[in-house]
Amino acid sequence: MPATLGTVLLLLCALQIKHMFADFYLQTPKMLSGRGEYLHVGRAQHAAVHVVGSVVVFLIFGAPLSFILIIGALEWIVHFNIDFAKASYSDKKQLQPDQAAFWRAAGLDQCLHNLTYIAMAWAWVEFVAR
């Protein structure tokens, strides 16, 4: 698939839709509890749900399996650590939804995930869609 502006925007839209479902519809209680611990199985599962969604998106966009495996592994590592940083900070500060700092932390978390998708789209353009 060629890397036209329209295709890149569609890729970013697909990654955003995937993100919405993985972050807001497909999280289980196990994924949401105890997130302040670094080695958290639920967070690992949550990051894996994101990777599965990205695999589907990149398959639709014609990425080869080697690219998908590399980008998926990198996304898992990045997503896991972004979520840990937010959870750890939120726990240390005892943030609650009625506090502005809670929403700043949530906003930064989402911003970092969005920047990850921009990097993933760049990699697709650079290494796949040439």
Rank of each mutant, 00 (worst) to 15 (best):
R35G: 11
V55G: 12
I71S: 07
I68Y: 08
A73R: 01
E75F: 00
G72A: 09
Q45F: 10
A48P: 01
D83S: 09
D23K: 09
V41K: 09
P97M: 00
I71Q: 04
R35P: 04
M20E: 03
Y38Q: 08
G34M: 06
K93A: 09
V56N: 06
A85F: 15
A44D: 08
S90N: 00
I71V: 05
L32G: 06
A63R: 12
Q96K: 13
T28K: 11
F58L: 13
S33M: 09
F84G: 09
G72S: 03
G42T: 03
A73N: 06
V55Q: 04
G53K: 07
V49T: 13
P29L: 12
I68K: 05
F84A: 11
S90I: 00
L69R: 12
R35C: 04
V51T: 13
E75D: 11
I60A: 15
E75T: 11
L32H: 03
M20S: 14
L59N: 12
F61E: 05
L32E: 07
I68G: 03
H19S: 11
G36P: 01
K86Y: 00
A44Y: 08
P97C: 05
E75Y: 01
A44L: 15
A47N: 06
Y38C: 09
I82N: 03
F21N: 02
F80K: 04
K30G: 00
H46W: 09
K86Q: 14
K18Y: 05
S88R: 07
A44R: 08
V55C: 10
Q96W: 10
K30Y: 04
M31Y: 01
G53T: 07
A73E: 01
I68R: 11
V57E: 07
R35Y: 03
G72P: 02
Y25L: 13
H79G: 08
K18V: 07
F58Q: 09
L26P: 06
A85T: 15
I77F: 14
K92N: 11
L59C: 13
